[in-house]
């Protein structure tokens, strides 16, 4: 029998869908940022990646079960330290810029921009949600955070198609972070 955590791909799929209907659901995605970090900090290693990552399961399902993956090997440079840490640094920089623009809306410097930014460049108007019920900065963070989630899903789908189903896991910034935390906690075991 399948265990409950093997159905977490449903969580990921529902999460990505909800963002299309109401952007404020984007906040739920913080779970996927906080849980893996906390688990590795308390010494559970990469148990999130290994057993609970809904996104990984979704790529596995689409790539393996639905045969949408060409199953080729990923180019060796993608698994190199400099690429993985470089992508993490880039990702964190873009994330910080997003948090800063939320702050600028919070302190009243800027107005709320109802836009989803794909792949850090393409701006999509996303103004069908009534966001007037919440403070503008809460909505701004939702737009920014959903942009991050949608962008990384698209990158993951592209590499799922060209390489192995879960090739996103090779350069996933969360995965790189949890592995680094695990390495710091068990320095003597690192090869």
């Amino acid at each position: 029998m399948k265990k409950w955590n093997e159905y977490l791909w449903i969580f990921s799929a529902v999460y990505m869908t909800l963002g299309f209907f109401n952007i404020l659901f984007a906040w739920i995605g913080l779970i996927c940022f906080i849980t893996p970090l906390l688990l590795s900090i308390i010494g559970k290693g990469k148990i999130y990646c290994n057993s609970y990552c809904g996104r990984g399961q979704l790529f596995e399902l689409l790539g393996s079960r639905f045969k949408l993956s060409s199953n080729r090997s990923i180019p060796a440079f993608v698994r190199s330290k400099w690429f993985r840490y470089g992508f993490l640094a880039f990702f964190m920089t873009m994330f910080s810029i997003m948090v800063f623009s939320t702050y600028l809306v919070f302190n009243g410097t800027n107005n709320l921009k109802e836009v989803i930014t794909l792949l850090w460049t393409i701006k999509l108007p996303w103004n069908w949600t009534n966001t007037s019920t919440v403070s503008p900065w809460i909505a701004q963070f939702a737009f920014g955070f959903y942009s991050v989630m949608l962008t990384s899903t698209i990158l993951g789908l592209i590499t799922m198609y060209f390489f192995k189903p879960r090739s996103w896991c090779v350069y996933c910034p969360m995965g790189t972070m949890t592995q680094s935390i695990s390495m710091l906690k068990h320095r003597r075991m690192v090869k």
């Binding site: 990646c49 698994r79 879960r166 896991c169 090779v170 790189t176 592995q179 695990s182």
Partner: peptide, 9 residues
């Protein structure tokens, strides 16, 4: 193990 990403697949 030097290049393993520990994803668990």
């Amino acid at each position: 193990q030097k290049e393993c990403v520990a994803c668990g697949v």
